[in-house]
Design a protein around this nucleic acid. Structure first.
Lengths: 351, 351
DNA sequence: AGGTACCGTGGGAGCGCTCCCACAAGTGAT
DNA sequence: ATCACTTGTGGGAGCGCTCCCACGGTACCT
């Protein structure tokens, strides 16, 4: 005869029902205790908690998700190709912050890559099926359809690195403007007069903000902003190298360079070396990201550190608030929230 | 197309029942089609598939998990402090491989950090509740209780970087022995005679294997292995620096160094510089990991690349096989599987 | 013919929760 | 005394699936 009910499968994990029996109460009461409802007398609560402890009861997530129509999970969506760019420490640091913030909650973290078309399609299905309570978006392109899709599905979402000043999603960002200012003010403070800037990709909002910071720091210090000192890069090493060569040709008298990323700075360094310029004696160099590359460069690179781990934390906090409200803030007519965290200049031998 | 703004419980996502009605079949039949059972006639299958497409049906994971007592999820567990070590590109590359392999399946990936005691406790609960079908373990310490716990709970698990030659869990590793041989043989081929080795942390199995590879490559080439040329490091930059200083003092005549990591090599490089040795003219240097640091070092560092992404893939393949078998291989008396993937030497200017 | 295999199929019985209604008992105002 | 609440509690009714048994239909044996 086939054994009806659970075979070896569940092993024997206790259920709510069993806890209730043990505590001499009803199922509903146990549920209330588990979920922290205030509508339970202290005596009953104690009895239930004892039973839970004795039985080693752990709620079944699937059953809960099914009954309550929520998942207790959020997804971190990574449009992969991008990650490679920003990457290096960025990604794992952010993960760390996210993980830390999440460890205070019952939420679990799903990692979803949406690089290929195929993966994107799967993601769309995923979201359509409401398999997560909220979504974290990192390094999203300006023209990515993902954010709009999320908005349409009314899935709470937080984006790191807003796509523009008019970002509609709740966002968390580091102060790109302020970070750039710190870099330039530092160079000015060191007595540099002719400070060039190699930008990041111009279609990235953060890169634009860094340019703004560069310009205004110079202006506020009474310097003229010379457009010939601004050369577009693309966050890559090759881009930094080419930009530096162009700058050296145009303005051989420059005595400092602020690069929009450490990798860009590494490229610039090569070009400077080849041109026979010494760092920092002839030309001071400042990067952005404070990555491993900065620490290991020769000479070690002064760089602007972003509080990435804190950003991860902040993203979770904002997202959980939205999830708790059960729908995107935008659709409730509340202020969208744009959180901006301060950067820090890490001085090293290159400047 | 799908523009039903329904909200609240049940939302409006189609259920199996609705698909069945639409296709004019029973619930069971739809379930069979969805799960690829062969026991369905072609005509029926086609009808069901059409209904699924028309309704945009996506199965409800929670309901499925509850009914079938499986989760369709696997966890990647990161005992965090370690990650920092190995980290840099290692972590995100592995993630990438894992993600790619997973995108061919219905499985979802959970990321779980188990750094703090608190996180570990939560993880234990998690596993006890069987909230995942399988577990991926990365960079686990030799004395970590996690693997045994997994074995006890009979949760399928695969570990990257076995803890010892006697690893009981299914494991995936790169060929540390072979990688070290490649490095040393390369140096010998370049005419170097006195080749030192700065090791990794001696309690890490992979580090031991690299030492073995170093020794045997020398032996096979007819060189004597001089213990004075082996100095323990700890994978860190400071450790590499100190080890290099010690080596230079003991054997000032050395003309090559094989470091157990790129970061270690970076430390060694500093010590060499300070001692006035030129790289590669006086001393050739080879690292391990082929990380960003290697590419950006001055001079660029020859390094041993591990096929990390492929390792991620392999881990998933092995894990899914175990999950399909529904219990750990060990308990079924089958061979434990230890997969070892080949490394590749990436030659650069430092050697 | 009758028997014995299978198919492919429908649908009942749960999986372990949450939600919510019902109800007993207590509290206070009328 | 009545009525209206409130508070704590029990338990029915699902949530959307999978599992499995039962059933009619074919096919191929005796």
């Amino acid at each position: 005869m086939a054994s009806h009910g659970a075979r070896g499968r569940g092993g024997g994990r206790p259920t709510l029902e069993e806890v209730a029996a043990r505590a001499g109460v009803g199922r509903g009461t146990v549920s209330r205790v588990i979920n922290g409802s205030p509508r339970v007398s202290d005596a009953t609560r104690a009895a239930v908690e004892a039973a839970v402890a004795e039985l080693g009861y752990v709620p079944n997530t699937a059953a809960r998700a099914l009954a309550a129509n929520r998942t207790d999970a959020i997804a971190l969506v990574v449009p992969e190709p991008e990650t490679r760019f920003f990457a290096e420490p960025y990604f794992s640091d952010m993960l760390r912050g996210v993980g830390a913030a999440l460890s205070d909650t019952e939420m679990q973290l799903l990692l979803i890559f949406a690089g290929s078309d195929r993966e994107r399609q799967r993601l769309a299905q995923y979201l359509a099926a409401h398999r997560v309570d909220g979504v974290l978006l990192v390094s999203v392109h300006a023209d990515d359809p993902l954010p709009d899709m999320l908005a349409q599905l009314e899935i709470p979402a937080v984006i790191s690195g807003p796509r523009s000043a008019a970002e509609t999603l709740t966002s968390v960002d580091s102060d790109n403007y302020g970070g750039a200012r710190q870099a330039v003010e530092h160079l000015i403070g060191r007595g540099r007069r002719t400070i060039a800037h190699i930008t990041g990709r111009l279609d990235v909002y953060g890169a634009q903000r860094r340019i703004d910071g560069y310009r205004e720091a110079l202006r506020d210090a009474g310097h003229e902003v010379d457009e010939l000192l601004i050369e577009p890069g693309d966050f890559s090493e090759g881009g930094g190298r080419r930009a530096m060569e162009a700058l050296l040709e145009r303005r051989p008298d420059l005595d400092a360079v602020f690069a929009a990323s450490d990798v860009t700075a590494a490229g610039a360094r090569h070009a400077l070396r080849e041109a026979g310029r010494r760092i920092p004696d002839d030309v001071a160099l400042v990067g952005y990201d404070d990555s491993a590359i900065a620490r290991h460069m020769d000479p070690p690179l002064t760089s602007v550190r972003q509080p990435i781990q804190e950003m991860g934390r902040a993203m979770i906090d904002l997202l959980l608030a939205e999830v708790a409200d059960r729908r995107p803030l935008a659709s409730r007519g509340l202020d969208r929230r744009q959180m901006v965290l301060a950067t820090e200049l890490v001085g090293r031998a290159s400047s």
